[in-house]
Design a protein around this nucleic acid. Structure first.
Length: 440
DNA sequence: AAGGAACCCAACCGCGATAAG
DNA sequence: TCTTATCGCGGTTGGGTTCCT
C-alpha cells in the first residue's frame, strides 16, 4: 500500500529523507540496527537511528547489499545456466529464481537477464540456447505446472523474438561442410546462413557447432542464391535469389548486400554480419522497411523435387471457412507469395492439408528435425498454446502450423485474427517459418 | 584524445498481497 | 469487516563505467 501510508521515495524526499546511493556510514547504521532488532519493521529504522532513509529503501539496501551470505561479482557459468533454465521455466519470476541461487538477489538476476536479453536481441539471437529448450521440452513434457507457467510466459513475451531468430546469418570462415557445386568463386570463404531458430547461441556466430540441428546454407557460386550446402539425397534444396532491386531481377553479391544494408542502417557492418537474416526477409521493427527495397521480395523458394510444394497454397486450396484461395502468380517472389499467403490465411483461417503437408515435409527429412519452438510446444501443449494465441490475439499467427513435426495431422484449425489486425510482414514470418522444411 | 554508444548496476516506483489493529 | 501498515515483487530509471569509432 505504497500509495497509502508507506513511505515512498517521493514522500521520503518531501520529508527531507535522502535518496540515491547509500554511503558507508548509512550502511553501518542500518547494519547496526538490524543486528540489534532484526529484519523487518523497516520504518522503525529511521525513528530509532535517525537514518534519513525510508523503510522501503532500508529494506532494499539490506536485501540487496548488506545481508550476510550475499555473493558478489559476476555470475558463474553454472549460475548463468541455472538462470536461463529457470527463466525458460518461470519467466520473469525473479524472486523465485533468486531462491534457487543462494547468495543472489532478484535484482541481480533481473539485471543480468535484461542485459543479456538486450544483447541477444541486438544480435538477433534466440534467448534460449537450444540444449536448454530441448531439455525443457524433454523434462517437462508432461509437467502440468511447467506447461502452465511456460506457456503463459513464452508466448506473451517471446513470440516475436523467436520469429526474428529464424535465420541466422554469419560470414564464418569455418566452412567445413561443403558441396562442390557451391564452391566459392572468390578467394573469400562463402558466406553461410544457418536456417535454424534453435541455434545454440552461447557461442559466437563463428563457433556454431556442427550438429544435426543446424541447417547450414551457403551462397551459390554466382553469389546470387542462398543454397543448402548439404548434399543429402533427401535433403530439401533451397535457394533464395538475392536481388539488388525491388523492381528488377538484377542480383547483388553478398558483399553488395551487406553494403546496401549498411548504407540503409545505422548498424555497422560487423553488426550486420551477426544480425538475424530474418530481419532482411521479414523486416523486424528495428530494422524497418529499409531492407525491402533490396529486392528480397523477388526471392523464390525452390522446394525439393521429392517434396513438392504441397504446403504452398494453390488454386485448388479451399480455406477452412470455404473461401477459395487464389494463389499469387507463379512467377511472383517468395516474399510476395508469402505475404499474399499470410493475408489469405488471415482472411480465411488455416486449412488442414497445408498443415499436414508441412508436417510431412519435416518427417521426410533424413536428419532429426528440430521443430520450431511453438510447434514443439504444440506437440505437447497444443491446447494451451491455442488458447494463448487466441487470447492474446497475436497479430502474427505464430500458431499457424499447429501440428507437430512428426507427421501427425492437425487437430483444430488456427483461427486467424481479423485481417485488419494482421501485420502482413509479421504474418509472413510465421508463414515462412512454418512452411520452411529445413526450419520446422 | 574525444565523443558517443553500450553496458552495468543500484535504486526508485507503483502495485498487489498480507498482516495487524 | 474495514483501515492502515508493511512487505514483496516486477518494471523502470539514471548515473557511472567501459568500449568503440
Amino acid at each position: 500500500m505504497d500509495g497509502g501510508e508507506e513511505m515512498t521515495a517521493a514522500t521520503a524526499d518531501a520529508r527531507g529523507l535522502k535518496k540515491g546511493p547509500w554511503t558507508g556510514t548509512e550502511d553501518a547504521i542500518l547494519m547496526e540496527h538490524v543486528k540489534k532488532h532484526g529484519e523487518g519493521n523497516w520504518n522503525a529504522v529511521q525513528k530509532n537511528t535517525g537514518l534519513l532513509r525510508c523503510g522501503k529503501s532500508c529494506r532494499l539496501r539490506w536485501a540487496n547489499h548488506l545481508r550476510p551470505n550475499l555473493k558478489k561479482g559476476s555470475f558463474s557459468p553454472d549460475e548463468e545456466k541455472i538462470i536461463i533454465e529457470l527463466h525458460a521455466k518461470l519467466g520473469n519470476k525473479w524472486a523465485r529464481m533468486a531462491t534457487q541461487l543462494p547468495g543472489r538477489t532478484d535484482n541481480e538476476i533481473k539485471n543480468y537477464w535484461n542485459t543479456r536479453m538486450k544483447r541477444r536481441q541486438r544480435a538477433g539471437l534466440p534467448l534460449y540456447p537450444h540444449e536448454i529448450r530441448q531439455g525443457i521440452d524433454d523434462d517437462h513434457h508432461n509437467d502440468d505446472e511447467f506447461e502452465f507457467e511456460f506457456d503463459s510466459f513464452q508466448f506473451q513475451n517471446q513470440d516475436l523474438q523467436n520469429h526474428q531468430n529464424m535465420i541466422q546469418y554469419t560470414n564464418s570462415s569455418n566452412t567445413s561442410s561443403s558441396s562442390s557445386s557451391f564452391s566459392s568463386s572468390s578467394s573469400q570463404p562463402p558466406k553461410r546462413v544457418c536456417l535454424d531458430p534453435l541455434i545454440s547461441t552461447n557461442q559466437g556466430l563463428d563457433e556454431l557447432p556442427a550438429t544435426p540441428n543446424f541447417q547450414m546454407f551457403s551462397l551459390s557460386e554466382n553469389n546470387d542464391t542462398l543454397v543448402d550446402v548439404e548434399d543429402d539425397n533427401n535433403h530439401f534444396a533451397f535457394s533464395l535469389p538475392l536481388s539488388s532491386s525491388a523492381s528488377s531481377n538484377e542480383l547483388c553479391s553478398p558483399d553488395q548486400l551487406l553494403e546496401l544494408i549498411s548504407e540503409n542502417s545505422t548498424r555497422n557492418k560487423k553488426d550486420i554480419d551477426a544480425m538475424s537474416f530474418s530481419s532482411l526477409l521479414m523486416g523486424d521493427h528495428e530494422m524497418g522497411a529499409s531492407f525491402f527495397p533490396l529486392g528480397l521480395d523477388n526471392a523464390v523458394l525452390e522446394l525439393p523435387s521429392n517434396q513438392t510444394p504441397s504446403h504452398s497454397l494453390t488454386s485448388n486450396t479451399i480455406l477452412d471457412n470455404g473461401v477459395p484461395y487464389n494463389p499469387p502468380p507463379t512467377n511472383s517472389g517468395l516474399l510476395d507469395a508469402l505475404v499474399e499467403e499470410a493475408q489469405a490465411l488471415s482472411r480465411g483461417g488455416m486449412f488442414k492439408d497445408v498443415r499436414a503437408s508441412s508436417s510431412n515435409l519435416c518427417e521426410n527429412q533424413d536428419k532429426p528435425v528440430e521443430m520450431e519452438f511453438e510447434n514443439r510446444l504444440n506437440s505437447s501443449h497444443q491446447s494451451s498454446f491455442e488458447m494463448q494465441t487466441e487470447a492474446s490475439n497475436l497479430a502474427s499467427p505464430s500458431g499457424m502450423f499447429v501440428g507437430n513435426h512428426q507427421g501427425n495431422n492437425m487437430a483444430e484449425p488456427y483461427n486467424a485474427p481479423p485481417s485488419s489486425s494482421v501485420d502482413p510482414i509479421a504474418s509472413l514470418g510465421s508463414c515462412f517459418w512454418g512452411n520452411m522444411p529445413g526450419i520446422c
